[in-house]
Amino acid sequence: MKAVGLKSPPRRAPKKLATDADLRALQRMMMHALVQPLTADDDLAPTWRDGRPMAEVAAEFIKPNERLTAFERLQIYSRSYWFRLIDCVYDDSPGLRALLGEERFGVLVRAYLAKYPSRSFTLRNLSGRLAQFIREEPRWTQPRTALAHAIARFEWAQTVAFDGEARPVLTPDDLGGTPPTKLRLALQPYISLIATEWPVDDYVLAVKQRDALRSEASNAVDRAPRVAANKKVPLPRRAKIYIVVHRYQHTLYYKRVEAPAFRMLEALAAGKSLAHGVAAAGPRVKAEQVRDWFATWMELGWFARR
């Protein structure tokens, strides 16, 4: 699998570093060695991309010492790279892990990172393309790809809600006398709107509660918590739901909304006018209901000035 964003390394490691281009060539060489997936035994891959033994390639640019070969020294970094990144996605994805099981999850994450190595200075963004990857390569999650995709989207939305940008909250005064046909609102950037075929919110919450019990049970004396802690969380049953993942006073929340309210929020998020948003909610929705929703959303600070 070709890693997205990586540029080809030189055929041979530079023998001298005279220029910036030489430095880049050496760094590309090492980068390619590190991001190459580990073997099943978590060793550095034995073969370089052109078919040469990795040991030969490593020896081109890394010195051995009296205890370690060049290959072994490179392997320390390769393992460190993979373990660090896998740990990070692992922490971001308790629901996906529970769905797939530890082993399949591990295989998925390695495939994901092999295709999408980090393109950001911060590990916070590492799982940002996982949902996309699951859709692009369903073989790693079959036969539960759609559910895995929904969970991955939901878990990424939590990262966004945790530390995403908050713009100045819209106040009733800001609404002024703007007619609904002209009034355009923006949703806070930390908010994600998720329509899904499964109650992934309940599922992920149940997984987190079980994991918390597991953690407590490791120190518990009585048996009851251990039983609860080892229980498998039942898979969610199909049911169309609409979730707004948001935060309030620095705490993360998932709020379910009705379909018409969701349609209205989607329309507003897309830059439509308030009148258009109300229309998107549907003809059966009463004005009083829209007022209630809107009051709640304003109170939660969901809107920002556009």
């Binding site: 890693a3 964003g5 590190l34 970094y77 790279y81 990144l85 980090s118």
Partner: peptide, 12 residues
Amino acid sequence: GSVDGTYTHDLL
């Protein structure tokens, strides 16, 4: 720890 915009998140 990075080259061509790809990051290792390591101190190489």
